[in-house]
Design a protein around this nucleic acid. Structure first.
Lengths: 344, 344
DNA sequence: TACCCCAATGTGACCGGTCACATATGGTGC
DNA sequence: GCACCATATGTGACCGGTCACATTGGGGTA
């Protein structure tokens, strides 16, 4: 309880200095102090120095709240993230945070866990008066939620999809998936299994598409993909199933973690990777180079993606014409988990 | 450029409704609206409903800025994170974010990359008027920066260290390291190498201490630890060196990623894990169960740690007595990367 | 010298909430 | 019937910046 006893010294929290205090100390008007803060041109150098000295003296810190109130700009960029603990999203997030901060913005993160919380999370971001939004929750549900919300806030989504054309920015997932698939095809594989992420994810769909397109270009038959949930555990489970009734020589996994689980299962089943089965992953997490065997995979530059998100959003906020590239191109990293298929 | 052409329709941004607008619509005073917003008791139910209806009607959203200004409370909790892309920190972060949000706070994250930016990052958090701070950058430099700053803001650090006693919360790193070491000792190993994280990190020191204590309890000699940088790559490099001139039967690695690199190096050198060399990791990242072999490691509950951080900080902010446990206890997870040492 | 203009600075209102305090209303005890 | 009090509501100041506009002084030009 916060009841102050009668007679107790009223420790009047020594109210932090405001611009009028600074003005008084510098012997000029509060408006000129404001001009100094904002780097306005028409302030005499001598005046500026006086003000700066006064600010230092009084330990002046401008109040974000007051500025926000009058300018009705919050200086906040909201970021909607799902699965923030994963390598990819959190890498992008770090880059976003850093770039936004350099531009003077504060990053407000809303983690989406279960599907129902998307609207709630968006609502909170809007409630915090975010000036712009970055949507990094690549499920279709999220996209729908955005469309329904009919926000009038600028936003950027990290997706590749036909919808929301104006706002998107993406790694070209289709191209990445084709790269991985082509690598296996070039090695001589024809019976290739694709292990995907969960149904609702944008990447899942894009990578399936890339896989199918490349397979058909080579005249190979693309079997129905197997659905995982991005975790190594799900890769392991699927690997076990494949051992039981699979007819294939290679697997293209939609991320590196599942690839790890797959390899685990194959080894346990007495099969060698890449001698008996080839595996290609996606993402190139830092650990991938040290899997056994080191994983051939597709690298996505998550940090670059994050930086471009902010660049695009800031351009929008400032009303600048945007000259930014909207596609980050993934790249095949060849290591030792894929080889020519066994004879016969 | 934002020059509006003369004669252009001045699209007077239809200023969002404020409490006075709501008051007018509901036929009462603005103060009563404020009371409704804050759930004040003495508002007649019928009045409350009228106000609620008016708020709905006008799509009223209270202005954070205005409230902040007058209450001089920002509703912001600052989090200082280093290496936010790693599994541990980002897991904690997600938990922190979620818990803080539930309590109505906004989480402001400052990523620390290079060492010099610590003060700058702290400064920015303070500049954003954060009410409380969570320090999740477990290097000694950070601790020093905090001490020097002599902040008057409540804060919690995720460290185990003798300093800053009042503010800390931690996983008991010493206990965890002892668990790992004891496991190897019980299997019969005596020549155990400890691979640590970089020098400046709090965890590094604590785990070295745990390692040494347990070794000495068993009368085994603890060699000088080898220093990595948390990455699988550094583990791999150290593994190569160990192969050249090591005299040991087991390795206790200060995290799972380095353990992965070590195993990679050992395998490449023709040694089997765990037959020839045993390896124990630390953290239990989700992938650890699918390493080859599945990694025996020490689990830290990062999410729990994050939640407790917020609980502790909020208690402090509210001036409540804190009844929270300050230690999260780690746990040994036995898998297949450690076995009895080879004969001889 | 009169005039204008621009650079440099000052004045007061305003943003949208909350706070302290004032006021109206109805119920209770004597 | 009156003092008293709790409940319900209203009034105006205030937080700390920025905005639009007013004011001052000095240099250049006719």
């Amino acid at each position: 309880m916060n009841v102050s006893r009668p007679g107790e010294e009223k420790r009047a929290a020594p109210r932090a200095a405001n611009i009028r205090d600074v003005a008084r100390a510098a012997g000029i008007s509060h408006q000129t102090v404001s001009r100094v803060i904002n780097g306005h041109a028409s302030v005499r150098e001598s005046t500026r120095l006086k003000v700066l000295a006064a600010m230092e003296e009084l330990q002046f810190r401008p109040s974000r709240a007051a500025r926000m109130l009058v300018t009705s700009r919050s200086g906040i960029i909201g970021v909607l993230v799902s699965h923030g603990a994963y390598y990819g999203p959190s890498s992008s997030l770090a880059a976003i945070e850093s770039a936004a901060r350099d531009a003077g913005y504060l990053v407000d993160i809303a983690n989406v866990t279960d599907d129902d919380s998307i609207t709630k999370a968006l609502d909170r971001l809007v409630g915090h008066a975010a000036e712009g939004l970055i949507i990094q929750a690549p499920q279709f549900k999220t996209l729908e939620a955005i469309e329904h919300l009919s926000i009038d806030i600028p936003f950027v989504t990290v997706h590749s999809t036909a919808r929301l054309e104006d706002h998107r920015l993406s790694v070209d997932q289709v191209a990445g998936a084709r790269l991985a698939t082509r690598h296996l095809l070039e090695l001589g594989h024809r019976r290739i299994v694709h292990v995907t992420g969960p149904k609702g994810w944008v990447e899942t769909g894009e990578r399936i598409r890339g896989f199918r397109v490349e397979m058909s270009v080579w005249g190979a038959e693309a079997a129905e993909p197997l659905v995982g949930d991005w975790t190594a555990e799900s890769g392991y489970r699927i690997g076990k199933e494949l051992l039981r009734d699979g007819n294939f020589t290679a697997v293209f996994s939609s991320n590196d973690q599942m690839a790890l689980g797959l390899i685990h299962a194959f080894r346990e089943g007495g099969l060698d990777v890449p001698r008996d089965i080839s595996v290609v992953g996606f993402d190139d997490i830092p650990e991938a180079a040290h899997f056994l065997p080191p994983l051939t995979t597709v690298r996505q530059d998550f940090a670059e993606l994050g930086r471009r998100c902010i660049a695009l959003l800031l351009a929008d906020l400032r009303g600048e014409p945007e000259t930014h590239h909207r596609h980050v191109v993934p790249e095949l990293v060849v290591r030792n988990s894929a080889a020519a298929p066994p004879e016969g």
